[in-house]
């Protein structure tokens, strides 16, 4: 064997950790780690992944190593996910040292920094129109989306709990859209709020979690499902609070 057991273990976990952080399903992470380890010629392994933890143990004759990684917060990044998938397929075929792998992983990072903001600016007006708003509403909802994205970008360094963050964001959405309608720049505050809420609603992670459950990862699937439910509740609560505070103005 070309590499030390420890090095192989760390390498496989580096890739697994990054994939989980980018929002991959649990079973995909487990399978990837297994394939990589097999590609490096290891026969006996125990791989366990959850939505917040990965533990891997590998054995060879009388040596055995265990390493675990704690995943704190998940930030969806489909570009990285795709690239990591390719990378892991390459690694299985030709074994590369860990330094090279780390270098490649780093090169995928932070490629699309401006895109999320532009995406928010496209998605929010589109959904305002989708739910029946007029063009004035769409322009206002674009403005609010810019504010929202700026807020999220600003807060992303502080690592505040996602629940609290969504509560504050939905509250901001509610307040600003009611105020804009009050001034007279737009007509339907409900359509503006809905368009922007779509940016926060995490229904998606909820539906993806169903896949996890049906591949046998009941624990993490349930964890993600509950997370999604709570986020939806929190968003509702934030908007409700803003309606209670400023609903009398309309």
């Amino acid at each position: 064997m070309k590499y030390k057991l420890k090095e192989i273990l760390s390498l496989s976990l580096d890739i697994g950790e990054r994939m989980l952080k980018c929002g991959a399903e649990i079973s995909r992470v487990e399978e990837t780690i297994k394939y990589i380890l097999e590609g490096y010629g290891i026969k006996y392994m125990e791989v366990f992944a959850m939505n917040s933890l990965i533990i891997v143990t590998i054995r060879k004759e009388d040596e055995s190593y265990t390493e675990s990684r704690r995943i704190m917060h998940i930030d969806k990044d489909l570009y990285q996910l795709e690239k990591l998938n390719e990378l892991s397929r390459n690694i299985c075929n030709k074994n590369i040292p860990r330094k090279e792998v780390l270098k490649q992983i780093d090169s995928f990072k932070g490629k699309y920094k401006v895109m999320p903001i532009i995406g928010g600016m496209i998605a929010a007006p589109a959904f305002t129109l989708f739910f029946g708003g007029n063009y004035k509403d769409a322009i206002i909802s674009l403005l609010i989306a810019v504010v929202l994205c700026a807020y999220n970008q600003f807060m992303s360094h502080t690592h505040i709990n996602a629940l609290i963050n969504s509560f504050i964001s939905s509250f901001i959405i509610g307040i600003t859209s009611i105020l804009f309608v009050k001034i007279g720049l737009a007509d339907n505050f409900d359509k503006i709020i809905i368009g922007n809420i779509m940016l926060l609603i995490p229904g998606l992670s909820m539906f993806i979690s169903i896949n996890d459950i049906f591949k046998g990862d009941t624990m993490s699937g349930l964890g993600r499902f509950t997370e999604g439910l709570f986020l939806a509740l929190v968003v509702g609560a934030g908007v409700g609070l803003s309606l209670i505070m400023l609903g009398g103005l309309l």
Binding site: I118, G119, G120, I122, A123, A126
Partner: peptide, 15 residues
């Protein structure tokens, strides 16, 4: 509008 919205979300998730 639905397809534009999907595209926007593709950007938000950094596809």
């Amino acid at each position: 509008y639905a397809s534009i919205g999907s595209l926007g979300f593709g950007m938000v998730f950094k596809a």
